[in-house]
Design a protein around this nucleic acid. Sequence first.
DNA 1: ATCATTGCAAAAGATTTGCAAGGTC
DNA 2: GACCTTGCAAATCTTTTGCAATGAT
Lengths: 167, 167
Amino acid sequence: MKPEFTLKSVEVSLTPQRRFEEYLQSRGMRNTQQRRYLLDAIYASHDHFDADMLIDQLPSKGEKGYVSRPTIYRSLIEFVDAGLLRRFELDGRAVYEHDYGYPQHDHLHCTRCDTLFEFQSEELFAIRNQVAQDQNFRVSGHRLIISGICERCNRAPRRQRRKQDLI
Amino acid sequence: MKPEFTLKSVEVSLTPQRRFEEYLQSRGMRNTQQRRYLLDAIYASHDHFDADMLIDQLPSKGEKGYVSRPTIYRSLIEFVDAGLLRRFELDGRAVYEHDYGYPQHDHLHCTRCDTLFEFQSEELFAIRNQVAQDQNFRVSGHRLIISGICERCNRAPRRQRRKQDLI
DNA sequence: ATCATTGCAAAAGATTTGCAAGGTC
DNA sequence: GACCTTGCAAATCTTTTGCAATGAT
């Protein structure tokens, strides 16, 4: 799924899979089938997703490629730690998106169709840094979510959530 | 508890309690003891709080002023709906703050002592509105949280979380 | 062979709900 | 008295954990 509009790209030297292998090696962790299945599923598209969407995307119990729920939760934590995914909270659940090789950005959240739209703003970073400096605060990151109704839902007031989000 | 630094104030014509009474009347809802106990507790300070902090602040079961957990959760939803409280998510739990008579603002979150610091920025609103306009997005609100380490924790690297947040 | 990892089952934490009893208008 | 609310208990939902079996190095 393509992003909703163009973002500046970022230089990347390794594939996410390769980078994760290095992360594993550096920590004495193991490159298991489950971790590979999960990375493949995650990088099969560019959508935002939560644990349940990832589970639905994977084969069912008994089939090849199945990964149990606890392992999925454990792996998501590892992927975030490895810098492959960013995590944030939306309506009380954890949502993930690609991080490695993907630029920092913020979101517009349509509360009607539940779609997340991305945007980048230099000015936002400038404000963030200025505010932090004023309070002698050492910034590690930020999260901005603008809520409202997207253009599509504005045009079609009674439309259901978008097909792509029902996966 | 005073805010961490000065915010522009907002004109208010009614006390929160009065405003909530009007809200109740307009909906055929009832002004119960529990709702009054909760509002009194909430307006006894100006801190950010979650459901558990509110429960801890109230009398225990059997004592006068006790309110059960389900009622607290139900009431918090009503207070948000009535415009008395704003709600947001932090580390997976719901956090509330005063809304009525209190200006819109955003937060710096110290991940060491877990304190929330408030700030206001006109420029942030301008950016928000511009981004939304560019995407034909109808804004209903936004939430920005800047994460990092606050000045106090920076000066005292090993300090525990602030006393005021242990309540 | 060692020791990290998995899947299962169960636990945990936060929040929500059905419902009978009680309180407010 | 009508009917909104409450408190209890139990359910839900998401995520986490203990542990024995399995798998990677």
